[in-house]
Amino acid sequence: MGATLLEQAKADVAKDVGTTILLPSEVRLKVDADAFAALCAANRDMRLEREADGGLAVMSPASGRSGRRNMELGRQIANWNHTADLGAAFDSSTGFTFPDGSILAPDAAWTQRERWDRVPVEDQDRFPHIVPDFVAELRSPSDSIKQLQAKTAHYIAQGVRLGWLIDPTTQTVEIYRPGRDVEILTRPESLSGEEVLPGLVMDLKGVLFD
């Protein structure tokens, strides 16, 4: 089904004809990795992810407040990384191919330089087959907290060493680490990057609260 829809979408793009597909909530489209890459290339303004079983997930654009918060989150990580010079930082548009075949795009991610440099250049230009050392998810008002919790736990199960789930709605942060219970902080002023992002202290003003 996925390939057929993709072929139709390509034909419509070639004809410069816009189409809208309305899907009931119980219907899931499945695509393989190559079809997903082609779908993303043809729909660059859309935020798409691919689940482990090939299921296609379409995410809404961020609201103004969420976009501003996400920019501040990424800015602090990028500034720290520029100074520390320890690895590579990525924004929310970067999709990573995880060991189970899912292709997911955290709101922010970081990986050690040695690990990133081992990824072939041709793979770096796609959805790289690498598990980030760190990921962060920032909840928007329209996001399901249970889905974000499951997604962040999934990152850890796939090999991520540190995960943050930042929820401005409840002003809490959930910290995920391998082999440990989730730690929940209420209205913390800052977060430590711990041994994964050494020296990073995230100021949560403008990220968790205004």
Rank of each mutant, 00 (worst) to 15 (best):
K151F: 04
P188E: 13
R139D: 07
R180S: 15
D85M: 11
R118C: 14
V131W: 09
T170I: 11
L197T: 08
E194K: 08
A89I: 01
T111I: 08
P99N: 12
E189C: 01
V131A: 08
P141N: 07
W110H: 13
P132F: 11
D107R: 02
P168K: 00
A150I: 02
T186Q: 05
G179L: 07
W110N: 08
Q112T: 15
N81V: 06
H82E: 11
S190V: 04
Q158A: 08
A108S: 09
D123T: 06
Q147S: 10
H129L: 10
Y176E: 04
T111N: 06
I103E: 07
R126G: 14
A84T: 02
Q149G: 06
V173L: 07
R177F: 05
H82D: 15
G206T: 01
T111F: 05
L200D: 08
P168T: 00
L86E: 12
G159T: 03
P106S: 08
R118D: 15
V131M: 11
T94R: 07
I166H: 00
L200Y: 09
L86K: 12
S140Q: 03
A89E: 12
V182H: 01
I130M: 06
A157V: 15
Q158F: 04
D143E: 05
R180F: 15
G101D: 05
S102R: 13
G206Q: 03
I156L: 10
S92A: 15
R126Q: 14
S144D: 07
V160G: 05
E174V: 04
W110M: 11
I103N: 05
S92M: 05
V119D: 07
A88I: 11
D181C: 04
V121M: 09
R118I: 09
Q147M: 07
P120R: 10
R113K: 14
L165D: 01
T83R: 09
L148I: 10
S93D: 12
A89P: 04
G101T: 05
R113N: 09
D123K: 12
L208I: 00
S92N: 11
E183A: 15
D107Y: 02
P198Y: 05
I166L: 00
L165G: 02
A108Q: 02
W110G: 09
G206N: 03
D123Q: 13
V196K: 08
D167H: 02
L86H: 08
W80T: 00
L200A: 13
L104I: 13
R161W: 03
T94W: 03
S93L: 11
R187C: 12
V207D: 00
D85P: 05
Y176R: 06
L197S: 06
R139K: 14
L86A: 13
Y155D: 13
A84F: 01
T152W: 01
L208T: 00
A88Q: 11
L148S: 07
D133W: 06
E114Q: 13
L138C: 04
E189M: 01
